[in-house]
């Protein structure tokens, strides 16, 4: 069955309408060729990138942008590596400047990361909120990487975030979704009287079942990088993540059966042959 036949709403993320609910990163690949192939296999339309100093001396002179089809992918620049709101704001403005020059539709949004420390890479909620407030004023559509804390999530939405993106577990940890109940409460709070408000699980996803779980919880999308880039076979894992995202979404839309303590037979209970003694 092709996904085109499935009765699902389009995924509106700010001003962007997306057919894939999977957003993938471009970091940590051993080669640009492997990255390209993995991006393709993931079926994603949106890919994240980081903003870094241009090296003054580069032996090979290769740039990530030489390997990305800018007509095909919408770039989502992040503010990774920033530990305070001011730096995140500067990085967001620099990223926008590059994407405007490239005429990529990603020029109008940013994934805000303001991190608390290098050991956990957990978000600093206060810095994240401050950066979000300023960047919203600057006209950015702000996609906020945050913890799975429902109150912080609500505060970020109130500050004008286009999407709140709670972490399943720490960045690159591959631990999956550690506290599905917090994600459930985030979803309940963020979607109250606003069912289409986009909530994306960002970070910690290690394998396909983690993606499916996020989607079955009712999240609108999943953002991941290391789960694919760090897999032994990146391209096959990218396929797996794509399918898991679709499977999880359809499973969510279908309305699962309630969990019960005891069994209910699937086969008829009548007409069974006489039991042996």
């Amino acid at each position: 069955m092709s996904t085109a036949t499935i009765n699902d709403k389009p995924f509106n993320l700010g001003t962007h309408t997306l057919s894939s609910r999977l957003i993938v990163g471009t970091g940590k690949y051993s080669s640009f060729d492997l990255m390209q192939e993995s991006l393709e296999a993931s079926g994603s339309e949106v890919i994240t990138v980081a903003v870094r100093r241009e090296r003054l001396i580069d032996s090979e002179g290769r740039n990530l942008l030489d390997y990305i089809d800018l007509d095909r992918y919408t770039i989502l620049p992040n503010t990774a590596g920033c530990f305070n709101a001011d730096d995140a704001i500067r990085v967001a403005r620099l990223g926008r400047e590059i994407l405007e020059g490239l005429e990529n539709p990603g020029a109008n949004w940013v994934k805000v990361e303001v991190l608390g420390d290098k050991r956990t890479l957990l978000p600093d909620p206060i810095g994240t909120l401050a950066a979000t407030e300023q960047l919203v004023k600057d006209g950015f559509q702000v996609l906020c990487y945050t913890t799975d804390d429902p109150i912080t999530a609500k505060r970020l939405k109130d500050a004008g975030a286009t999407s709140v993106m709670p972490a399943g577990s720490p960045i690159g940890s591959g631990q999956g979704i550690l506290n599905p109940n917090n994600i459930r409460i985030c979803l309940e709070y963020l979607k109250e009287n606003d069912p289409d408000y986009p909530v994306i699980v960002d970070a910690g996803v290690g394998c396909a079942s983690d993606v499916a779980m996020a989607m079955e919880l009712g999240c609108d999308g999943v953002l991941l990088n290391t789960g694919i880039a760090g897999a032994k076979d990146c391209v096959t894992m990218a396929h797996a993540m794509r399918h898991a995202c679709i499977a999880g979404r359809l499973s969510y839309l279908s309305g699962r059966i309630p969990k019960k303590l005891y069994a209910t037979a699937s086969s008829p209970t009548e007409g069974v042959i006489s039991a042996s003694k």
Binding site: G27, R53, N63, I171
Partner: peptide, 10 residues
Amino acid sequence: LEIVTLVGGG
């Protein structure tokens, strides 16, 4: 001056 470009990231 800070001169930046885009690199792989998540």
